[in-house]
Simulated assay, not measured.
Amino acid sequence: MNQTAPAARNPRGQGSSSRLVPRHGRAVERHVRNRWSLPAFSFVATMSIVLVSIADTSAPAVAVELAAPGATTVDSQEFTASGAHSVTAELAAYDITEPPPPPPVAAPAAPAARAGAPAAGTPDPGSAKAIAAEMVAARGWGTEQYDCLVALWQKESSWNVYAYNASSGAYGIPQSLPGSKMASVGADWQTNPATQITWGLNYIQGRYGDPCGAYASSQSRGWY
C-alpha cells in the first residue's frame, strides 16, 4: 500500500512555491501567487491611465503615416496661401452747369397819364352844364371829372342838345351813335338834355370808368 509522504516545509517559512511528491513519484511544481502581485499591477495600470489623461494637449499632434511595404515616404510640404482683396469704386464724371438766369421781368407799363382838362368854372344855373355838374357829384366824382366832361362834350357837340353829325348819324350832347340808343333812358331823348346827359354818363362809366378816362381816349384817338 502506497502512502503519500508529507510535504516538505520551507525551513524559513517563506517562498512562493512548494514541491509535492505525487503518488507516482513525479515532481509537480505548483506556483502560488504572491499576495502583492495583483495590487501592484492595478496601481501601475491606473497610473498609466492618469498619465495619458493629463498629457499636454497643447503640443502639436504628430501625424503618423502607415506606409505599405515598399512604399516611398515623401516629406511633408507646407503651403501658405495669401491674397489681398480690394474694392475700387469709380464715380461717373459729370459737370454741374448752372441754369441761365431767367430773363428780367419787365416792369408793368405805367398807365398813361390822364390828360388834365382846363377848369370848367361854375356853370350857369338851369343850363345843361349845371345839370351835368349835379349828376357828376351824385356819382361820387370830383370837380376834375366835371372839368373833363365839360371839355369832352365841348369838342363833340358844344353842349348843343340838337347837335347832329350828318356823316356818322351821331346825335345830341353826348353824340350817341345812333341817337335812338338814348331812348333806353327816356322817350324824350331828342329834346331833353337831362335824358341825354344821363345816357352819356352811363356810357362813359361803363366804357372808360370816368369822364377823365373818356377824355384821355378822345385826346389820343380823336373820338371816344
Rank of each mutant, 00 (worst) to 15 (best):
A5S: 11
S82W: 08
W153H: 08
T191E: 06
P193K: 06
A138K: 02
A194G: 06
Y171D: 07
M135F: 02
S176V: 04
V185I: 15
A68R: 09
A55V: 06
Y208A: 00
S76L: 12
Q175R: 03
P60H: 08
A151L: 00
F43Y: 07
S37Q: 15
L91F: 13
V136G: 04
S82K: 10
V28H: 10
S217A: 11
M182S: 12
V87G: 05
R221D: 15
P108Q: 15
N160M: 03
F41T: 15
E144H: 06
G70V: 05
E78A: 05
A166D: 15
A151F: 01
V32M: 08
A63Y: 05
P102C: 02
G126Q: 10
A67E: 14
G222F: 10
M1R: 08
W36E: 13
A216E: 06
A119K: 02
A113V: 09
T80I: 11
T143G: 07
W141A: 01
W199S: 08
A7Y: 02
S184G: 13
R207E: 15
F43V: 15
G179M: 07
L201C: 03
Y146G: 07
A137D: 09
R114M: 14
V50P: 02
T46E: 14
R33D: 13
M182L: 08
I197F: 06
A119S: 10
P125T: 06
S218R: 02
A138F: 00
